[in-house]
């Protein structure tokens, strides 16, 4: 009933409450991350042992942790690092996976078999162990963590891209393009990859929270980011130490931030995928 009262523009799915909420959360998070050094130019790692485990108050909106560091302040800086690691690692993984999947599907034959056996072999190894191995070979840094996650998480994207391309390739519209004189490259770039792209985008976005968690695991083992550097993963792990003393805020706040931002990201990706499908787009009256 309220639906009908709304003007047509506002009834468009772009303005659905969930989408609006997700956009607001994501825009606020990204803006806060970018503006953090301007908004709150204090050292987020500064220890103040006189003020450990203070409950949330006006002075410390999310309380302080076991070393007296402001949780809200540190969460903001942690979100910066985590999102950077997550996004770049997911892009690296999608890039490698997309490339391997495309090469395997288009070359076929021996190249395909060889590449997919490599994928199977890597998939058979525990990927955390492999990630640790990669990090251990490099100096502990942001780049090492990103590389370690990127190099161990491209397998599913490669498989998705390869199988999608193989099934698309047998469709009559590809036959029609071939008969019409389209080259291999044109068939791939004009008719095949555009159909796979939403899948890659979705896999990439879903990879972001996973990559953040992976960074957490590496940091927890002392192989990821140095412990004084704030990342959501580091903070959740640090916060565990305070849980039994009743200081729930030290891990809950960064945890909630992680959930809110990754959920917002997932909601918007789903919307984006729907927009890319022409039939769904028609059904949505856009």
């Amino acid at each position: 009933m309220t639906d009908l009262a709304l003007p047509a523009r506002l009834r468009r799915p772009l303005f659905r409450p969930g989408i609006v909420l997700a956009s607001v959360v994501l825009v606020a998070a990204v803006a806060a991350c970018l503006a953090a050094p301007l908004l709150w130019p204090l050292d987020e790692s500064a220890v103040d042992l006189a003020r450990t485990r203070l409950a949330p108050s006006w002075a410390h909106l999310a309380g302080t942790d076991d070393l007296g560091r402001d949780v809200a302040h540190r969460s903001l800086y942690g979100l910066r690092v985590s999102l950077l690691v997550g996004a770049v690692a997911a892009l690296v993984a999608a890039g490698i996976g997309g490339l391997v999947g495309t090469v395997a599907a288009t070359c076929g034959g021996r190249v395909d078999r060889a590449l997919m056996r490599v994928v199977d072999t890597i998939a058979a190894l525990p990927h955390l162990l492999l990630g640790i191995f990669i990090v251990a070979m490099l100096r502990p840094s942001l780049a090492a963590v990103i590389l370690s996650i990127g190099l161990t998480h491209w397998l599913s994207t490669a498989r998705i891209v390869r199988s999608e391309l193989l099934s698309l390739r047998t469709r009559p519209f590809v036959d029609a393009a071939v008969a019409g004189g389209a080259s291999r490259t044109r068939v791939l770039t004009r008719h095949l990859l555009p159909h796979v792209l939403p899948r890659i985008a979705l896999a990439t976005t879903l990879m972001v929270p996973h990559a953040v968690w992976h960074e957490t695991a590496l940091s927890f083992l002392g192989l990821g980011l140095p412990p004084h550097l704030a990342s959501l993963g580091n903070m959740i792990n640090d916060g565990q130490r305070s849980l039994l003393t009743g200081a729930w805020w030290a891990s809950l706040v960064p945890g909630l931030l992680l959930v809110a931002v990754t959920l917002a990201l997932a909601a918007l990706t789903g919307r984006w995928r729907d927009r890319l499908d022409p039939r769904v787009r028609a059904e949505l009256h856009l």
């Binding site: 469709r171 009559p172 519209f173 036959d175 029609a176 393009a177 071939v178 008969a179 019409g180 004189g181 389209a182 080259s183 004009r190 008719h191 022409p278 039939r279």
Partner: peptide
């Protein structure tokens, strides 16, 4: 391509034969 385009084919299902 010059040889392929000498022969054209029309499929039963136009929906399957067109890039959506």
């Amino acid at each position: 391509a010059a040889v392929r385009t000498r022969v054209a084919i029309l499929f039963q299902s136009p929906r399957a034969a067109t890039d959506p």
